[in-house]
Design a protein around this nucleic acid. Sequence first.
DNA 1: GGCTTGTGAGAAAGCGGTTTCAGGTCGATG
DNA 2: CATCGACCTGAAACCGCTTTCTCACAAGCC
Lengths: 342, 342
Amino acid sequence: MRNPRQGRPNRVTISDVGAAAGVSASTVSRVLNGTTKVDPSLAARVHDAVRQLGYRPNAAAQGLARGEWGTIGVLVPDLANPYFPEVLKAVSAVARSHGRRVMVMESDEDPSIEHDLVEDLMRSCDGVLLCSPRMGRADLVVLTARDHPLVLLDRIVPGLAAPAISADFFGGMMLICGHLAQLGHRQVAYLSGPEVSWANAERIRALEAAKAFGLSVTILPCGSTSSCGYAAAAEVAGTGATALTTYNDLVALGAVTRMRELGVRVPEELSVVGFDDIALDHVAHTGLTTVSTPRGQLGRQAAEMLETLMTERHDGEPVYLPMELHVRDSTAPPRVTREPAE
Amino acid sequence: MRNPRQGRPNRVTISDVGAAAGVSASTVSRVLNGTTKVDPSLAARVHDAVRQLGYRPNAAAQGLARGEWGTIGVLVPDLANPYFPEVLKAVSAVARSHGRRVMVMESDEDPSIEHDLVEDLMRSCDGVLLCSPRMGRADLVVLTARDHPLVLLDRIVPGLAAPAISADFFGGMMLICGHLAQLGHRQVAYLSGPEVSWANAERIRALEAAKAFGLSVTILPCGSTSSCGYAAAAEVAGTGATALTTYNDLVALGAVTRMRELGVRVPEELSVVGFDDIALDHVAHTGLTTVSTPRGQLGRQAAEMLETLMTERHDGEPVYLPMELHVRDSTAPPRVTREPAE
DNA sequence: GGCTTGTGAGAAAGCGGTTTCAGGTCGATG
DNA sequence: CATCGACCTGAAACCGCTTTCTCACAAGCC
């Protein structure tokens, strides 16, 4: 049944154009795609017909015939997280410059549906950009094993067939630790992100490594939202920490708000550091010390990787983009140095 | 040329599945779509084959055969504007619940390319959600005249064939004016948004109407970003206004930042009101008085409208969603009442 | 001038599904 | 026991476009 109920839109086909111009459909196609020389006068007639009939080629038919959808897919955990729109923006620009459309999906932070979503993207896109901090390794192996262009974003997993690009979370946290150590802090607390998040693991790995700077770290379970930060902030006092590091800026800002309420002065009594630099500092004047993720570059480069992946085969190593430290008003030397460095 | 270079992904077709299961392709299709009763044992064999071969139907082929792409398209002016991700999130959820994927495009605030983008969406999507505050009326007329489901978001234009839904910007600004009038303000300045923006016009229309409350309004050209607000804030002093209204929260926050720098105390010396409620107040504690746009509901309802539009024909009137006033810390009575109401 | 090249346009064969159409099997019925 | 429907299933047509294949025609060569 051709679903006669709804007059399907855009019913003018390439043959209609051909008929109107007095040529065959093949010729119309050739004119529009410029694949072969055609008689200029015919070409003109075709263009006229196209304009008059308002012809627009059916994307599905083109995709089918060409074996290319002209589309790339992006999966992100949460669109509302200010981190992603910026990435998306860059991806979208790159895709457009290559004549591709962008399909966006969101998993709502639910890793269990991500596999299906990616499969869905794969069957409707030429390539997929996957940003999934939580997806289990097994799923990743299955997906990257499929012979379908896929680039991993902000997630480096050794041994996968797919290329990957990520901000250097480890390096970013090291910058923070260095900054804190230099200020004289020794006891640091960390409001940890999602348990199974790779990005969170990277931060923790850096915190461990920072023991070399003489930092001692207490890890408090928290989450990735400002309300998590707000809720978890109360427990920082018990750790004796003079500085607080966080999974991201949202958590940090939530914590700062709570600290204010608790009468803990920032940074005099407690230094607080964010992560990602999404604090919109120019607008909201939060003055949060943090490290910045190069989100635009991340998106741009990821999209370019995907684009090359769709023509050549993959070769390269995972790419890490450096983060940058922004010292603002939320960090200061600890009030009392516990003891001078031995 | 079939582009033999790149082994096209997902080469297992429905016929392969049929062969593996010892049935015809038609039967496989019937099993997968459940259109007709098929022998249970055959169905089982088919399902096995599907699983073993990892078959996924080619979306383009399905789209072509069914005359439906299973996709809706969304065009927004700027993904990085925190307003849109929330709308998008809701749209995406609704689309998914109807088994549709979402294609996203961004015009980068450039109305001149929007027409093409929409055309592109139309030829690859079953329906289009158009959020374009700037597009000229002529373009809108052309696009809505095409026989293709399209819903207008945050833009009500009388006389168009397409259904429309918008936040009630007029009502929102009236709430603000009422609030300010009640506090005793008489002289109000407005940092105006983009010249040609419909949403901006609505706000101004409300400001005009608020003369009935005894408010006298000075309109200052500004823009839609925080840096615009920052830049334009200096001119407010010259107007004698005791309260400042803005195109949106970003502008307002930029203005507040500048006011702080200029030594103007908010709200003691100047009340400032935002618009949209994207200030992330729970995280950044900006304390900005503003009106909230029901972005989630907007996206949800718009997507539903589009969905019904794709089956039935359109009938209804434009929908306006109410805004809500949030009084926070950035508004207060004026320091000196210029003169008592006559 | 006859024959080989070269050129450009139309016919036709897919791309990978869905859906119509026709036929074959089987149970029920007269 | 022969006939008629129901009901499935496979073959074939079709969705709209691209691309190969084929062929007619014109120009170039000896």
